[in-house]
Computed example of a mutant assay.
Amino acid sequence: MLEAVDISKKYWDRSSGKHYDVLRNCSLTIQSGEALGLMGPSGCGKSTLARILLRLLPADSGRIIFRSQDLTTLSQAQLKPFRQQVQFISQRPESFFDPLLKLGASLREPLQIFGLPDNSEIIESALSTVKLSPALLDRYPHQVSGGEVQRLSIARALLLKPQLLILDEPTSMLDISVQAQILHLLKSIRQQQQMAFLFISHDHDVIRYMCDRQLQMRGGKLV
């Protein structure tokens, strides 16, 4: 489904005047319906790789292939179908919601962007999947808990019916009890909708619970 081929990335450090390798010839493949875990310590390049796979960051070299199409040189307009089919869940979901907009407006925004039907039944179905009440839609982001915001970010992604979720430490900022609820919810969604996951974490127990197989990243390389 999604393949990365020899992805490399350097960052410029102004203080030292040197380039540093963040990613070095990283390759991976995610099959349809598979949950692939990506493990490694903080700073090893996991999040950078995720953002390159999403075409949110440019790679210095390498290719990204989705369903046999090379995405590497496509324009933002040409990437629109890809952006609907591959959704991102962050460890900081509040950053995806405008603090000045009610949650209902933010939830509907992707439907408008991609020209999809926007009606109460579709919204309520997505909220039901993540076990939230429609009453939350009249609130602002600061009026709900971290766990509720993360559930809303998952619901917003599901509205687009993606084939792949890329999840970057999606529970690391939550309380332990809420973490368990979100992980159970994500696993249930994946099983019901036969969706593929790239699940990024530094926690071996979380990866073992969520994923079919795992890759380790150390010092910018997949090992």
Score class of each variant (00 low, 15 high):
3 E>W: 13
5 V>C: 14
6 D>H: 06
7 I>C: 02
8 S>L: 00
11 Y>E: 06
13 D>T: 13
15 S>A: 11
15 S>F: 06
16 S>T: 11
17 G>S: 14
22 V>L: 03
24 R>L: 08
28 L>R: 07
30 I>M: 00
33 G>C: 06
34 E>D: 09
34 E>I: 00
35 A>V: 10
37 G>V: 09
38 L>G: 09
38 L>V: 09
39 M>W: 01
40 G>N: 03
40 G>I: 02
42 S>P: 00
42 S>Q: 02
43 G>R: 01
47 S>T: 12
47 S>P: 03
48 T>N: 02
52 I>W: 14
55 R>Y: 05
55 R>K: 09
56 L>K: 07
58 P>C: 05
58 P>G: 02
68 S>A: 07
73 T>N: 15
75 S>R: 04
76 Q>T: 10
79 L>H: 04
80 K>A: 15
85 Q>H: 08
86 V>G: 02
93 P>E: 06
94 E>Y: 06
95 S>D: 15
96 F>A: 11
97 F>D: 05
98 D>M: 10
99 P>W: 07
99 P>Q: 12
101 L>C: 08
104 G>N: 08
106 S>I: 13
107 L>Q: 09
107 L>H: 10
108 R>A: 13
109 E>R: 01
110 P>K: 07
111 L>S: 14
111 L>P: 14
111 L>M: 14
114 F>L: 13
117 P>A: 02
119 N>E: 06
121 E>M: 10
122 I>L: 12
125 S>Y: 11
128 S>V: 07
132 L>C: 04
134 P>M: 13
140 Y>E: 05
141 P>G: 12
143 Q>N: 01
145 S>K: 07
145 S>L: 05
148 E>S: 06
148 E>N: 06
148 E>D: 03
150 Q>N: 04
151 R>H: 03
153 S>D: 05
154 I>S: 07
155 A>E: 02
159 L>N: 03
159 L>W: 04
161 K>I: 00
162 P>S: 01
165 L>P: 08
169 E>M: 10
171 T>N: 07
172 S>P: 03
173 M>Y: 10
175 D>M: 15
187 K>C: 00
187 K>I: 01
187 K>M: 00
191 Q>K: 14
192 Q>E: 07
193 Q>H: 12
200 I>P: 02
202 H>C: 06
206 V>C: 09
206 V>A: 07
209 Y>P: 15
218 R>N: 05
222 L>Q: 08
222 L>V: 09
223 V>F: 11
